[in-house]
């Protein structure tokens, strides 16, 4: 783990040649929030990559650093107080983290687009949805007003908004929650980006609408082969759609695995506890399991493994040494000193 400051010297050679090379490589990302109450280490040493057409879910409680990671990738952190202190974000080999803002801007929307949690507040209330979708073409492609509107209608059709032609001049508050989120998706989709980052895209929606919006995202991804980073706290949402899941806790990646592996046999006690905390129909009548304690204060993260105060298996080493994100057999990783024991279930709860 290199300790130098922002990595500006990362290799910037684009590797267009290999179609299976990762579109996005995040390496050793560190983000801090400098507030009056102290420095909050929101993201510490996060590393992952995303292959073309792949869906990666980043899972964690609020405050685990998952949204901050997304904002750092997009380059839309509020600075101050948020600062990327280390690490690189490479898009097709280009370290976009190191680019000047002017060039960086071209990646937003064009290469990497983002969908936010609350579509009502994320859409500008004073412009029509057609204007807000069309703005992408007008600014990035220099399209005329009329062309932009035609494109906006096409996109609204594509995300299955009924009567797109009639509704293109309506304002965000005139749409339902699910329809508004579709408009956000249409904006993200507009320039055919290689990656879409969806930050809790369905959290604010009703359960039935959630499923529709997730299905839409999955369909769109299948037809356009774009990469999808799905940020959520809801294990249920990611189960069907994600290829890979990364679990974050207190700003660190603590486990990474293919979805199926992670669900069937977690390699980190936190993931194990998370899965145990999902209400299940076949467990009806039994007490619902909850993880004891609260997530740590990011200005004062416990020494060693940040999860140790809440971990049922914690031993003395856990409060002394921070476990590295080790490669675990089966193309997965875990940041637990006892991943082997967690995997084969041989650990005893103290």
């Amino acid at each position: 783990m290199s300790q130098d400051t922002i990595n500006t010297t990362a290799d910037n050679r684009p590797h267009d040649g290999d179609p299976n090379a990762p579109v996005l490589e995040v390496e050793n990302l560190h983000v801090e929030f400098r507030t009056r109450d102290g420095v909050a280490k929101a993201v510490t040493g996060v590393t992952f990559d995303l292959l073309p057409g792949e869906t990666l879910a980043i899972l964690g409680e609020s405050g685990s650093g998952k949204s901050v990671t997304a904002q750092a990738i997009m380059g839309i952190l509020d600075t101050p107080p948020g600062f990327v202190t280390q690490g690189s974000v490479r898009f097709r080999g280009v370290d976009i983290q190191a680019l000047p803002e002017k060039e960086r801007r071209r990646y937003r929307g064009e290469k990497i687009a983002m969908i936010f949690q609350d579509a009502l507040s994320s859409l500008n209330p004073v412009y029509s949805v057609g204007y807000q979708i069309g703005e992408m073409f007008r600014v990035h492609r220099g399209a005329s007003r009329a062309d932009a509107k035609t494109k906006a209608i096409e996109l609204m059709d594509r995300v299955h908004i009924p009567a797109a032609r009639q509704r293109v001049n309506d304002y965000p508050h005139q749409f339902s929650g699910g329809m508004r989120q579709r408009i956000m998706i249409a904006i993200a989709l507009s320039l055919d980006p290689d990656i879409i980052i969806a930050d809790e895209p369905t959290t604010a929606l009703d359960v039935t609408v959630q499923a529709q919006v997730m299905q839409l995202l999955a369909d769109l991804q299948a037809e356009s082969k774009m990469g999808l980073i799905l940020i959520t706290h809801d294990l249920g949402v990611v189960a069907d759609v994600a290829d890979k899941i990364s679990v974050m806790y207190a700003g660190r990646l603590i486990e990474q695995a293919r979805s199926l592996d992670l669900y069937s046999n977690p390699a980190h006690p936190y993931t194990e506890r998370l899965l145990a905390a999902i209400p299940r129909v076949d467990m009806k009548g039994q007490e619902l399991y909850t993880i004891k304690g609260i997530p740590p204060n990011l200005t004062d993260i416990p020494a060693g493994c940040a999860f140790h105060p809440r971990c049922p298996y914690a031993q003395s080493i856990c409060s002394e040494k921070t476990p590295p994100l080790e490669v675990v057999p089966g193309d997965r990783r875990s940041a637990c000193h006892f991943w082997k024991e967690v995997l084969d279930g041989s650990l005893q709860i103290r």
Partner: peptide, 19 residues
């Protein structure tokens, strides 16, 4: 909400308000 910035506050607060 002791911190001046909502996003930073949201990050630290889960725990600090508790304590």
């Amino acid at each position: 909400m002791p911190s001046q910035d909502a996003s930073a506050a949201a990050l630290t607060l889960g725990a600090s308000s508790e304590s």
